[in-house]
Amino acid sequence: MLPFLKYEFLQNAFLTGIMVGLLAPVLGVFIVVRRQALIADALSHITLAGIAANLLLGKWSSFFATANPIYLGMAFSVGGAIFIEQLRKVYKHYEELAIPIIMSAGIGLSVIFISMADGFNTDLFNYLFGSIIAVKQSDVWTVFAILIVVLLFVFFMYKELFVLSFDEEQGRLSGIRSNWILVAFMAMTALVIAASMKIVGILLVSALMTLPVAASIRIAKGFKQAIWLSVLFGEVAVISGMFLSYYLDLASGGTIVLCLVVILFLCISYKKFTGSRKVGHL
């Protein structure tokens, strides 16, 4: 076995990282092609509000003091996701407005809760930037449950998600009940964002959802291939990022995101290189 996996906390982090490296890009593909890349940012900030609320409530209630803050973060995130889908309907012609509305509400709430809870502590810092040593056993099980739910959803709803992302009208014509599928999808996204926080941190969750996809759609032929490549890139970045983070003693979120940036850069230059070779042959 890999030497660095002899510690239990590192095993927890590693398992969680592998699951998150699969989940975030899978949902990210649908989010990016629907041109909603910023939704991940909005939801991560509302998640932060949930976590801050938990820290605050922990001051007064022993229930919240012992609870894993990730659960309240998830509850906020799912609530925010459902709210975004509703707002998108209110602002039909400015759908993207829903995102800054939720994002600023999330930041506003977080700031208030944090200041009421007498400011920052290391816990909160870990959520902001990700820390592999902070991953608990209960986090692993929570993420595992989310993994099962999300993979089943995407597997069985693949057709529907695909057609709704490409062309909502065609989806409705095929008799697809777009409303509940999109709300369920947003709820799944919210769960995955909350699940990814410990590893990459709130500020960088959206990178794990969108950067692998940004890289894969440069080179993928077709939608299925885009999904597989995104997952491959996500996993490579998470695993190598966690190694680097451990051996160089750096924040895991930062190393993972930098690995993603390198992959993205390689994909863009690969495309450029093969593209220019074709021209050369003509």
Partner: peptide, 23 residues
């Protein structure tokens, strides 16, 4: 449509069958 959408012609045409294939 979004021309950067990563779907092959085959995948696009197969969408036309989704109503028949069912949930």
């Amino acid at each position: 449509f979004n021309t950067a959408f990563p779907a092959t012609a085959f995948e696009v045409v197969s969408m036309g069958l989704f109503g028949r294939v069912g949930l």
